[in-house]
């Protein structure tokens, strides 16, 4: 691979470009920083005006995120034995005791299961379909590809009511399987189209060489094509995960209990014992972590993936 530029940018141009990038980064990262900071504020600091840039950090938001609490009278509080743990101490400062764990952990786990489950399924089915569309003479190929794409031609939420009724009849409402299937159905068109592009770029000769070398079509697929498509698979997986992870509307509509994901749950935290912005911010901060880790792990592939096809090897 080689890169070239027609003219080397001058140092002033580089300086200007750098400034722009930094400015843009500051603007986009500001809300993130706001959320991160709010998570470590006390409720009073969180709503103070003007906003506090410097504040005494507190873990109250995180404690409130993971617990349910009940208010007690000062007399009752006196009667209790001294707090055994640091988080109990924080709660008692507010005249409350811990009643039990919150549901955030479960909801977070649901998000992980549904997000990664649907990503895996989208990639698995998408890769097989993309390979078939790329390599074989499929009857009505163009029509089928258009049909797959057409599932994305209106906002998915437009069909929310039919899906809601369908899920209720099929018993898929508020189940992990139901949500995985739903997110897979939405993501599969993206996966097929993106992956077909990547697989089209892999010369057929590689598989043909493997066929000649005594491997079956399937062996050639997973030993030669898959490693070559890793870049495309990684970037497609990130796009699929981001959608499934962040999806809110269907999650509100179709889940309430066992299969509820974190996005519809986080806003409900606010209702427990006043306007608890730090707890909401703590929930949102933790919610960012998995996608961030996943993206950082795959970022080399992602960068190559986005420029794939633009650069001739």
């Amino acid at each position: 691979m080689s890169s070239f530029s027609i003219t080397e940018p001058s140092s002033r141009q580089k300086w200007a470009a750098g400034t722009l990038v930094i400015l843009y980064a500051v603007i986009t990262l500001l809300p993130l920083f706001w959320i991160l900071a709010t998570g470590f504020k006390t409720p009073a600091d969180a709503i103070s005006y003007p906003p506090k840039i410097l504040f005494e950090p507190s873990l109250e938001g995180y404690v409130n995120l993971f617990t349910t609490r009940t208010r007690v009278t000062p007399e009752q509080l006196e009667a209790l034995p001294p707090p055994e743990t640091w988080y109990e101490a924080i709660v008692r400062n507010r005249d409350m005791v811990i009643a039990g764990p919150s549901r955030y952990g479960e909801r977070f786990l649901n998000s992980l299961i549904i997000g990664f489950g649907s990503t895996f399924l989208s990639i698995f089915l998408g890769t097989l379909a993309a390979y078939a569309f790329s390599r074989f003479r499929v009857p009505l190929k163009d029509d089928l590809l258009f049909f797959i794409l057409s599932t994305r031609m209106m906002p998915p939420i437009a069909v929310a009511i039919p899906i809601f009724l369908m899920f209720r009849t099929l018993g898929l409402s508020d189940t992990h399987l139901g949500m995985i299937l739903l997110y897979t159905a939405v993501n599969i068109s993206l996966a097929v189209w993106l992956l077909k592009g990547f697989i089209d770029e892999i010369p057929r000769e590689y598989e043909e060489a493997a066929l000649i070398d005594g491997y079956t079509r399937f062996q050639a697929f997973y030993k030669v094509v898959l490693p070559q498509a890793a870049t495309g698979i990684a970037s497609t997986a990130i796009f699929c995960l981001i959608f499934a992870w962040n999806e809110y509307a269907f999650a509100v509509l179709l889940t309430s209990g066992t299969a509820q994901t974190a996005p519809p749950f986080i806003p409900t935290i606010i209702g427990v014992g006043g306007q608890d912005w730090p707890a909401v911010a703590a929930g949102a901060t933790l919610f960012l972590v998995p996608v961030m880790v996943f993206t950082i792990l795959l970022r080399k592939h992602l960068l190559r993936g986005i420029t794939f096809g633009a650069v001739r090897k």
Partner: peptide
């Protein structure tokens, strides 16, 4: 018969060496 059962070798124009 499929290529894998013919016991022949093939040299491609672009060589098609496995890049990985």
């Amino acid at each position: 018969k499929p290529a894998s059962q013919r016991d022949i070798a093939f040299v491609f124009q672009m060589f098609a060496l496995y890049p990985h």
